[in-house]
Write a protein that binds this DNA or RNA. Sequence first.
DNA 1: ACATGAATACATGCATGCTATCACAGATAC
DNA 2: GTATCTGTGATAGCATGCATGTATTCATGT
Lengths: 217, 217
Amino acid sequence: MIMEPRLYTTSADYVYQELRHQIVTKQMKPGQRLPEVNIAVQMGVSRTPVREALRRLASEGLVLIIPNSGARLASPTRREMEDTYAVREQLECISVGIAATRISERNLRRLDDSVLEEEKAFEEKNLELYLEVNENFHRIIAESSGNRVLAEYVENILARTNAYVVFYDPFYDIDDNPSIAHHKGIALALKEKNSEKAVKLMREHLKLSLSDLNKPA
Amino acid sequence: MIMEPRLYTTSADYVYQELRHQIVTKQMKPGQRLPEVNIAVQMGVSRTPVREALRRLASEGLVLIIPNSGARLASPTRREMEDTYAVREQLECISVGIAATRISERNLRRLDDSVLEEEKAFEEKNLELYLEVNENFHRIIAESSGNRVLAEYVENILARTNAYVVFYDPFYDIDDNPSIAHHKGIALALKEKNSEKAVKLMREHLKLSLSDLNKPA
DNA sequence: ACATGAATACATGCATGCTATCACAGATAC
DNA sequence: GTATCTGTGATAGCATGCATGTATTCATGT
């Protein structure tokens, strides 16, 4: 499996992606302090781009910044996760509902591809790839809604919820991953242009994702 | 009327608020370039806090940043505004629906106060105050939902839509402002704990707000 | 007149150093 | 023992300078 290198245009972008990577791959503990200098030294850059990356992560709710005090990794409570999923449900349901009425053939194919990749990543137990592809599935749907603003918000909340992986293990039930089956169902509903069905399945899918957060990390 | 000074903890925060003020009070044209140095000189600070403020505004969709090139004020198309309002409708409807089931007496009073202030600001034709109070009405409801994440997203989209004031004149119909009447209706529905009614009124209210964007600036 | 390309002016991205503020430990008072 | 004060170290906020990339202008050729 060839891991394509992360692409970035600026140092700040690099730091952002790298930090996000470290969070998702459980290299950091929720609530831990994130001093600018430490990160700067570790990544071989100055504090400036680190500051920028931290603020971006803060806008996604992954990092908490206290003025004049510093940044620390978020440590969402069970309640906060539920709240986040409540919002995500709203955004994604409207997103998939609209997408069903206007998704292009090309995006339907991209959706199928993404499900295939997802299965592969799951078999290989490649956590990072799995999350990335999983996220991509939802991203394609949001894009297909044709509402740019909506897509932007979905993107933001995907970043939040994906970080919650720190709290659970998506490979816990070794042979069983209903999530992929759900994605297949949603993709099918979109092919059929069945808006109601797509929304219903998406809602169920997200309820399940939330309950997954109970699986041991 | 005593205009309380804007409060801020850091220079970056000051620049952020000041820029936002200038946008809302129509001192800047949509699409105009926003060079860091210009702003820095104008506000008597260095480029660093200006950069930070610009990125924050970008996360609210008010400013467009092109890497290595610069920032410019957003110039949303009619389509983008509609898209934004579609998202806002989703977020605010769920927000007011939940709020109706659990809003505190204290917040009900704050809501009433905010409507009164709104009427006063409208009579005085005080644009900035009017917008601030208007925004506050929606903010109180979002807070009352008890969902912090939802409140955060509502806050963000309020910032976006309020900036659209650049494109229209809320005092265009001199004697008539149905928006305030709507707010009264929503506040009443909340008092009655009538969730359905509150959602319905909020939806109508936002549809109207969107159509208001046709009024000449 | 128009397109192409080089030169120049300009703006951003980043590194670095200084200053103001905060967090924490130890001391002091009660 | 608890609470409050105080000093010291650590950390973020900001200013500044340099390097890099972008936009604009103007010359050149067709």
